[in-house]
């Protein structure tokens, strides 16, 4: 088929219309991520250091990405995946019998993105760590 100027315009219009359809959001906005952080910290800006987030540099399969987080002295740690449709991943609350404030789990990542861990320390301060994970195959279905 010969691509005429008219058909090219029609195609463009079609794509524009499709993108306006109320589809599921493909990733969370920066504001949404900021809002989640603010909700967790009560508006305080988290500091750096005192928290270790271990993620693979490249995850071949976004359906199971191993993630470890450790923050000695933390009361709870929240994980966020900034590029997922819903940035929440989970919140770990440590009880009196936890030997270390660390945990390992496996998470889903939709695409290459930053994973953020924010820890609430026992003195009420907050620290965060941010790692980029490159994802070859996304893990959120379609």
């Amino acid at each position: 088929m010969k691509i005429t100027r008219r058909s090219a315009m029609m195609l463009g219009a079609g794509f524009a219309a499709a993108s306006l359809l109320p589809a599921l959001p493909l990733y969370a906005s920066v504001e949404e991520v900021e809002a989640r952080i603010a909700e967790f910290t009560g508006g305080e800006t988290p500091g750096e250091g005192g928290i270790t987030l271990t993620t693979p540099e490249i995850a071949e399969n976004g359906n199971t990405v191993p993630v470890s987080v450790s923050a000695p002295g933390a009361v709870s740690i929240m994980l966020l995946a900034t590029g997922n449709p819903n940035p929440d991943v989970g919140t770990f609350n440590f009880g009196p019998l936890a030997a270390s404030q660390s945990a390992t789990t496996r998470i889903r990542l939709a695409s290459t993105q930053d994973v953020v861990a924010i820890a609430k320390m026992s003195d009420g301060s907050f620290v965060q760590a941010r790692n980029e994970v490159k994802v070859t195959i996304g893990g959120c279905g379609g």
Partner: peptide, 27 residues
């Protein structure tokens, strides 16, 4: 929990993988 005392308490969201796995330490 261990003998009624909390070791860890986790809130999970849909971003946790199929067959949720957790590894953590307790005293």
């Amino acid at each position: 929990t261990f003998n009624g005392e909390v070791v860890i308490d986790v809130a999970l969201e849909p971003a946790i993988s199929t067959n949720p796995y957790f590894e953590f330490e307790a005293v």
